[in-house]
Design a protein around this nucleic acid. Structure first.
Lengths: 333, 333
DNA sequence: TATTGGTTAGTAACCGCTTGCAAAAAGAGT
DNA sequence: ACTCTTTTTGCAAGCGGTTACTAACCAATA
């Protein structure tokens, strides 16, 4: 008893109207007499008709689907952003095709083309930085794109961010205010833009403002997660660093645990701030003071922005900067 | 200069062949002479032709897209599963439409219908339990479904799991072996199947085997994350519990921190095991002994299973049980 | 040379829906 | 009753592919 899929034809026949009318009813077009509409709705319900979204997409050139590009699936930072996106997407009846792109592998072009071939109505790109490949792919197309929590120096694409420079600067300044003399910065790769142009610059600025000299060796690159953080602490200590701002929370957790294991007193002798406020910062003891980015909101606002672009509404502002705060916990005074 | 989308017609015209031939080339059909194929491929490259996946889907009734249903996006447990799924999906060229379903809201039916209307080739359902709504929706359809880390007492649908009962039992037994006298179980809701039929039963069994009495009050329901875990510790202590198995890792983290703050010595006076081995269990001090479910593998195997079902291959086994281990950390002896 | 059979390529129907256009129906006005 | 509008409805042409069927081609075999 293979169940036949019910099509718009079946409904039309059963309701004794044309498929055009059924289509109008389904799409809420008002040019339908009330009793006709009711008749059609009754049949739709009776047959349990469900429009085929693919056929619809082909005919209307709208898929009610958006693409989401993330660097890693199993990372709370992006999960939190995704949640904001998902909630708004649901509200506007969009589905989300999620694709993870390990930028080290050269699959970005392919992934973006794949999304476009599925006729997504828009794409949200989340990473720390907009890669050249992605930029070019986006510029070649008229599909709307939004960058969420992603730095783009050209500002060609709409984006939603916080002021990364201000955040880092405030963090470093607070170290100095607490009497620390030798702050450091631990980040992923120093050559990606969000780090080079924003974080490192902010770090320099904070030092300069305080009359301190900047030294390249105070920038530590680390991409190796918790273990990496744990290991980098030794270097930090060897170099006399007494306070550190770490971009990724798991790395920060590694640093804190290493300090704890080395009997270094936090925050008295060593302070830590993390740039992503996930639950890890809160759970670990000592808990970690974090730059509290409104991740959920960044996601939600990005998605809202995307819906506006899809509907070709006027954008008040294509580069939205959301406020951040610093959540004080035990790892700073 | 609105760029026209290149269609198969354009390629056909340019290559002076019919669209059928282009289609064959694109789909790797071998009934094409080599020089014809090359000519077509050259044009495809030159025009940068990208087949429209929607049109393709309509004509072929395959979308090369699968649906993924998760309870929460921002939960490391599901993220880890998703990663396994994603990697295999990528390998087989499937895209993933991810949808989160808060089961408390009654949107499950709608979500599943939405996925089906998009003509997904298959669906992976991840939750702790297969809801009745989902079961019915799945049974009405011939779209392949796989349950990943999800209990289904009827075993009507293919699934990939670990042996939850054995895992819990082993955990509780280890408490007793360590000399603990009063173990407890903290879980989400006691009435969902994975808990009632598996975890609670295993808890009872372990006690019975050790000649201890089971008491309903040793089952604690808690769905409130870290804070909830923190609060439940007080009750545990008041009731004389000396060891606890907690299903969610953040809840376990709450318990551990509460114990720490209450100066209760772990593991000497209080032992904790978590049923999900995410990074949180590893980072927290004392680190938490965890049932190490092969989450990534569960995801990967589920996806592989789904591809087999999609291709109508014979299934050796529709209910796969993967091995688990217990990762000993500081929260147990 | 006629027959056969395997390749290669084209024709056109179809997938299920949207939508512009025009016809039919229903009101309105005189 | 008749014309002029305004609404409601149907027709049919796509949307961009896949694929069954058929025809053309070509070499091999009888």
């Amino acid at each position: 008893m293979e169940k036949q899929e019910i099509t718009i034809y079946d409904v039309a026949r059963e309701a004794q109207v044309s498929m055009a009318t059924v289509s109008r009813v389904v799409n809420g077009n008002k040019n339908v007499r009330d009793d006709t509409r009711n008749k059609v709705l009754e049949v739709i319900k009776r047959l349990n008709y469900q429009p085929n979204a693919v056929a619809r997409g082909l005919a209307s050139k709208k898929s009610t689907t958006i693409g989401l590009i993330v660097p890693e699936l199993n990372n709370l930072y992006f999960s939190e952003l995704s949640k904001g996106i998902d909630d708004i997407a649901t509200m506007y009846k969009y589905n989300i095709i999620i694709t993870s792109v390990d930028t080290s592998v050269n699959r970005e072009e392919e992934v973006i083309q794949g999304l476009l071939s599925k006729q997504v109505d828009g794409v949200i790109y989340m990473a720390n930085e907009l890669s050249e490949i992605a930029r070019k792919a986006f510029e070649r197309n008229r599909t709307p794109f939004v960058l969420a929590g992603t730095v783009d120096h050209d500002k060609t694409l709409p984006s939603v961010n916080i002021d990364y420079q201000a955040a880092i600067k405030q963090g470093i300044t607070s170290f100095l205010a607490d009497g620390k003399k030798h702050p450091a910065l631990v980040l992923g790769r120093a050559d990606v833009e969000i780090n080079a142009a924003h974080r490192i610059k902010a770090f320099k600025d904070a030092l300069t403002d305080a009359g301190l000299a900047f030294n390249d060796s105070d920038i530590y690159e680390n991409n190796f997660g918790y273990e990496g953080g744990y290991q980098v602490f030794e270097k930090l200590q060897a170099n006399g660093v007494d306070s550190v701002l770490v971009t990724r929370d798991v790395v920060a957790a590694g640093v804190v645990n290493a300090a704890f294991d080395a009997n270094v007193k936090i925050p008295e002798d060593f302070e830590v701030i993390s740039a992503s406020n996930t639950i890890i910062s809160k759970i670990i003891r000592p808990s970690i003071t974090s730059i509290k980015q409104p991740l959920y909101d960044i996601g939600a606002v990005s998605m809202r922005l995307l819906t506006k672009m899809i509907n070709r509404e006027e954008l008040d502002e294509a580069h939205i900067v959301l406020p951040f705060t610093i959540e004080n916990r035990q790892s700073t005074k």
